[in-house]
């Protein structure tokens, strides 16, 4: 006779139909590290744009080329320099990447989706800025390109967790529970819906 004990609450960490858990630290820490590197680059570029530095390091296209990008009308179109906005984006990436347990795809969907919203648009914005460099200003900026590369590289690895959260909310909806409550991490729902 089997005497296995089944806990009344669901404690699975691997999402249903998945082969791994996208919210483990092994999945998230690399993204936080990469976002932090992006943050440092963006802060350095902001320091130039805020005139705290006189020049910008650029081993490939020369400082003058980088500076013409960083002083361009697009970079200065808003009250704050664009690199500072980028720095804020990377900070949001890192913070929303690090908050939450390794089950957060179901216990904290709002944080995972906020993380996805921080990572996705940052990458798309930097794609636009990469195109703008040669097309509008006929110049290149190595560190700006590096930052764009970093934000693009983050998108793919970040999206699996978002997918797991969205699928969880889909199951919540099919089970007849409130997706709004589940989005904010309702414990009763997350311990009932697998």
């Amino acid at each position: 006779m089997e005497t296995s004990y089944y806990a009344p609450t669901d404690t699975t960490t691997v999402p249903s139909g998945w082969t791994y858990n996208p919210s483990t630290w092994r999945e998230r820490i690399p993204l936080v590290v990469v976002a932090t590197i992006g943050l440092l680059i963006a802060l350095y570029l902001s320091a130039y744009q805020l005139r705290m530095l006189d020049t910008v390091w650029d081993p490939f296209f020369g400082s003058a080329s980088s500076e013409s990008i960083l002083d361009s009308p697009i970079a200065t179109i808003l009250p704050v320099p664009d690199a500072l906005l980028g720095a804020f984006g990377y900070l949001l990436d890192a913070v929303t990447g690090v908050i939450g347990s390794t089950r957060r795809w179901k216990t904290m969907p709002w944080m995972v989706i906020l993380f996805g919203f921080a990572v996705g648009p940052l990458g798309i914005t930097s794609l636009f800025l990469v195109i703008a460099q040669p097309v509008f200003f006929d110049a290149w900026c190595t560190l700006c390109l590096t930052s764009a590369l970093i934000s693009t590289v983050m998108i793919g690895p970040a999206m699996d967790e978002v997918l797991a959260s969205l699928q969880y909310m889909q199951r919540v909806k099919r089970s007849g529970y409130s997706t709004w409550k589940a989005f904010w991490g309702d414990k009763a729902i997350s311990s009932t819906v697998v």
């Binding site: 794609l127 693009t152 793919g156 690895p157 699996d160 997918l163």
Partner: peptide, 12 residues
Amino acid sequence: ISIAIISTSEST
């Protein structure tokens, strides 16, 4: 290039 980078990940 961006599309190729993003689709390197298995989930995307």
